[in-house]
């Protein structure tokens, strides 16, 4: 396989194969993301930015008004998040989805704010069900835009990662659980990311 070509010419022997390698890399890095942008999310009721979702122990409708005498909470979905079609949300909860991450918000009645750690622990069970190899990290407090105090804790598993939240006010608590495959929450769980902004928007009536 003696090569007698001059040093300043291209060796075209494997040009097609090299182009094929480049094509695969382009397909993965440009083609797939491009296809993704053109595919419509299979979510029900894509929620317009700024829409307020009302959750209550009585009903669960977008922008609906709960019946008098029922506990209720509201939150504002981030832009681009939509209600998951596969989830026919049970009363008092809603599941939003975006880019492989689901965000479930639920309103529950509790024995008081002192029960908030237990509420958080209960919310995190859904993460453990998804990936029993994971562990729930230590919790820390945060304050919502409405001034409610909440607790949050990270969940780290070998396949699934998540963040669990519990916001408590009086005898009402709202839990939120963000779940995604490992590595998916890296950007969205940042302090100014959509998960945190949705959580901070929780308001208990």
């Amino acid at each position: 396989m003696e090569d007698t070509r001059s040093a300043d010419t291209w060796d075209r022997t494997h040009l097609v194969a090299t182009a094929a390698v480049a094509a695969v890399v382009l397909a993965f890095t440009v083609g797939l993301p491009l296809v993704d942008t053109f595919v419509e999310p299979r979510t029900r009721d894509a929620v317009a930015a700024g829409t307020q979702i009302v959750l209550s122990t009585d009903r669960n409708e977008v922008a609906a008004v709960p019946s008098p005498g029922t506990t209720a909470a509201t939150f504002v979905p981030a832009a681009g998040w939509g209600r998951s079609r596969e989830h026919d949300s049970p009363r008092g909860s809603v599941v939003l989805a975006h880019d492989g991450i689901s965000f479930e918000v639920r309103v529950v009645e509790t024995a008081g704010e002192q029960a908030c750690p237990a509420v958080l622990r209960t919310a995190a069970r859904s993460l453990e069900d998804l990936d029993p190899t994971g562990t729930l990290g230590s919790s820390r407090t945060f304050v919502t835009d409405a001034g409610h105090t909440g607790l949050t804790a990270p969940f780290l598993g070998s396949r699934v990662e998540g963040l669990a939240f519990a916001v408590c006010a009086g005898a009402v608590a709202v839990t939120a659980v963000a779940t995604g495959p490992v590595g998916s929450l890296n950007g969205v769980s940042a302090p100014d990311g959509p998960v945190m902004s949705m959580t901070r928007s929780i308001e208990i009536a």
């Binding site: 595919v39 998951s84 492989g100 779940t179 998916s184």
Partner: peptide
């Protein structure tokens, strides 16, 4: 991209 695509086409639970 595949994670996002799969979520759109098959839902988050299937994707997880």
């Amino acid at each position: 991209a595949t994670q996002s695509l799969m979520t759109k086409l098959a839902g988050p639970e299937f994707t997880h």
